[in-house]
Amino acid sequence: MGHAEIDRRRLLVTGAAAALIVAVRPHLVLAQAGAGPFSLPALPYPESALEPHVDAQTMGLHHGRHHKAYVDNVNRLLESHGELQRLSALELLRRLPEVPDAIRTGLRNNLGGHVNHTMFWSIMGPGKGGAPVGETAAAIERDFGGFDAFKQRFNAAGLGQFGSGWAFVTVEPGTGKLAVAAAPNQDTPLMEGRPVLMGNDVWEHAYYLKYQNRRADYLNAWWNVVDWAAVDRRYAAIRRGEAII
Score class of each variant (00 low, 15 high):
residue 41 P to N: 10
residue 44 P to M: 11
residue 44 P to R: 14
residue 45 Y to S: 06
residue 45 Y to A: 09
residue 46 P to H: 02
residue 46 P to D: 01
residue 46 P to C: 05
residue 47 E to S: 15
residue 47 E to T: 14
residue 48 S to V: 12
residue 49 A to W: 06
residue 50 L to K: 05
residue 50 L to S: 05
residue 50 L to P: 05
residue 51 E to W: 03
residue 51 E to K: 10
residue 52 P to S: 08
residue 53 H to A: 15
residue 53 H to W: 15
residue 53 H to S: 15
residue 54 V to F: 01
residue 54 V to I: 14
residue 54 V to H: 00
residue 55 D to N: 14
residue 56 A to K: 10
residue 56 A to W: 01
residue 56 A to G: 13
residue 56 A to T: 11
residue 56 A to C: 10
residue 58 T to F: 11
residue 58 T to P: 08
residue 59 M to H: 09
residue 60 G to M: 04
residue 61 L to V: 15
residue 61 L to Y: 05
residue 63 H to D: 05
residue 65 R to W: 08
residue 65 R to D: 13
residue 65 R to P: 05
residue 68 K to Q: 08
residue 68 K to D: 04
residue 68 K to N: 10
residue 70 Y to Q: 05
residue 71 V to H: 00
residue 71 V to W: 06
residue 72 D to E: 10
residue 74 V to L: 02
residue 74 V to Q: 00
residue 74 V to E: 00
residue 75 N to S: 12
residue 76 R to T: 10
residue 76 R to V: 00
residue 76 R to S: 07
residue 77 L to T: 13
residue 77 L to Y: 03
residue 77 L to Q: 08
residue 77 L to N: 10
residue 78 L to F: 14
residue 78 L to E: 03
residue 78 L to G: 04
residue 79 E to M: 01
residue 79 E to S: 09
residue 80 S to F: 03
residue 81 H to M: 03
residue 81 H to V: 09
residue 82 G to Q: 06
residue 82 G to S: 07
residue 82 G to N: 12
residue 82 G to M: 02
residue 83 E to D: 11
residue 84 L to V: 08
residue 85 Q to D: 09
residue 85 Q to S: 09
residue 85 Q to V: 07
residue 86 R to F: 05
residue 86 R to M: 02
residue 87 L to G: 10
residue 87 L to W: 04
residue 88 S to R: 04
residue 88 S to N: 06
residue 88 S to K: 00
residue 89 A to C: 07
residue 91 E to V: 10
residue 91 E to D: 11
residue 91 E to C: 09
residue 91 E to P: 02
residue 92 L to M: 05
residue 92 L to Q: 01
residue 92 L to Y: 09
residue 93 L to Y: 11
residue 94 R to D: 08
residue 94 R to F: 02
residue 95 R to H: 13
residue 95 R to W: 02
residue 96 L to H: 02
residue 97 P to T: 13
residue 97 P to Y: 12
residue 97 P to I: 11
residue 97 P to V: 10
residue 98 E to F: 08
residue 99 V to N: 01
residue 99 V to L: 04
residue 100 P to Y: 01
residue 100 P to K: 08
residue 100 P to I: 12
residue 100 P to D: 03
residue 100 P to F: 09
residue 101 D to Q: 01
residue 101 D to I: 07
residue 101 D to N: 06
residue 102 A to P: 06
residue 103 I to V: 14
residue 103 I to P: 03
residue 103 I to E: 08
residue 104 R to W: 00
residue 105 T to K: 11
residue 107 L to A: 09
